[in-house]
Design a protein around this nucleic acid. Structure first.
Length: 399
DNA sequence: TCTGGGGTCCTAGGACCC
DNA sequence: TCTGGGGTCCTAGGACCC
């Protein structure tokens, strides 16, 4: 049976949500009606555009570009900081609303969901009508707009929601791809980014239609798996499912652009510990163990290097992760001036089941106890109240 | 006061094993 | 006695997404 899929995407999500929130608290200016962006703190060297109003877009302002460039394009631009709590709130509200239509809702990102309505429509009920109903309900109830893509293929639904914006619904059924999809530039296809476009263009592939009609094996030979994937997307044959069951993360990371360049490994190590504490805390919240630790450095020339290390023993303790991360930092650090430092845990495995035996040996229990206590105190009194910097940075073994 | 941060997945090459 | 080949694991880096 043909699938019935909606992809729903909030228009200028962060900016719209901030605008709505501000209007609710008495602000009279709607950020959506003036040149405005959500942006990072320039003084802290995080000054890029995260989201923009349609008015800002008319000035040629682009997402992810430095704010000083945006300001050059529009000197009167209003820059507003991000507020992830607000975004989470609206995202959750949307998700709940979608669940009224089907239990098969995939949260693809904070502001995008796929809805699989296959088998959830009444006899003769039109999926487009349902899409319109959802779109209008959101506008009326919450005061922001969304785009809706409708298709019998997941990837096509996603591409469709990206057609004309804002506050629009578009269909892109498999039967419509020749007319609606193939004339578009290949860059409009999901997963075709700015590195692939010139390579495809050099092969004479300019439109999605060109891609769809290129010999599959040529793409496979030139681009490997990736080539075959985008070929399937271009032909409306993604066969992708709406993954509505919550999934455990594959990795957890935290990185930090330091407001100034750092050329001192002790200082890097101190920052690394703070990052590890956050990562390890989240890992424990997920009830998972890590088997790989990864440290990344970006120098003042924006060159990025990373090292990773598989652990002999899976762990969720701050100490184990920090010990590994410290080693990796020492290997990596060559005396450059460092702009960003990051840590990730990967190869996550679920805690449940057997697996206990040798990993719960007595020498580990003390570190676990420390972590549990720290987590409780941090939850009670807020982060940063408690720090173990001295213990973990000293040379004494806390075992 | 020049360029974020969170992810996922893939690839290529080396080590190692049979 | 002139250098196999398949498989797995590990690592570093990169492409892409929002």
């Amino acid at each position: 049976m043909d699938k019935k899929i909606l992809h729903i995407d909030v228009n200028n999500a962060f900016l719209s949500w901030t605008a709505v929130e501000r209007l609710k608290s008495g602000e009279t200016v709607d950020l959506r009606t003036i040149p405005s962006v959500i942006g990072g703190d320039e003084a802290k060297r995080r000054g890029i555009v995260v989201a923009k109003s349609n008015v800002a877009k008319k000035f040629g302002i682009k997402t992810a570009e430095p704010i000083y460039i945006a300001r050059r394009k529009c000197p009167s631009i209003i820059v507003v900081p991000a507020d992830h709590k607000v975004y989470r709130k609206y995202s959750d509200q949307l998700y709940k609303l979608f669940l009224e239509y089907t239990e098969k809702v995939e949260r693809f990102s904070i502001d995008e969901c796929f809805l699989d309505l296959t088998g959830y429509l009444k006899p003769n009920e039109d999926i487009v009508k349902v899409g319109i109903e959802i779109k209008e309900k959101i506008k009326k109830q919450y005061g922001f707009t969304v785009n809706v893509g409708v298709s019998d293929d997941k990837i096509l639904a996603k591409v469709a929601s990206d057609f004309e914006k804002p506050d629009k619904i578009h269909t892109l059924f498999k039967s419509e791809i020749q007319e609606k999809l193939w004339p578009l530039p290949v860059s409009d296809l999901f997963m075709v980014g700015k590195k692939s476009v010139p390579k495809l263009n050099n092969m004479g592939i300019k439109t999605i239609g060109d891609l769809a009609n290129t010999e599959k094996n040529l793409l496979l030979k030139t681009f490997g798996k990736y080539g075959y994937m985008i070929w399937k997307f271009a032909n409306g044959e993604s066969k992708e499912e709406v993954n509505y069951l919550p999934e455990k993360p594959r990795g957890i990371g935290n990185s930090y652009t330091i407001p100034y360049d750092v050329g001192n490994i002790d200082e890097l190590q101190a920052i690394l510990l703070e990052l590890v504490e956050k990562v390890a805390y989240r890992l424990r919240k997920e009830d998972m163990y890590a088997t790989v630790v990864n440290v990344q450095l970006k120098n003042n020339n924006f060159k990025t290097v990373s090292h990773q290390k598989k652990l002999d023993v899976r762990t969720d303790t701050t100490k184990d992760i920090f010990d590994a991360a410290k080693e990796l930092l020492n290997e990596l650090y060559s005396g450059d001036l460092i702009r960003l430092i990051g840590v990730r845990v990967d190869g996550l495995v679920e805690k449940n089941e057997m697996q206990l035996s040798i990993f719960d040996m007595p020498e580990n229990t003390k570190n676990k106890k420390i972590d549990e206590t720290m987590d409780r105190l941090n939850e009670k009194f807020g982060n940063k109240i408690v720090t173990r910097a001295t213990e973990l940075n000293s040379n004494t073994d806390i075992n």
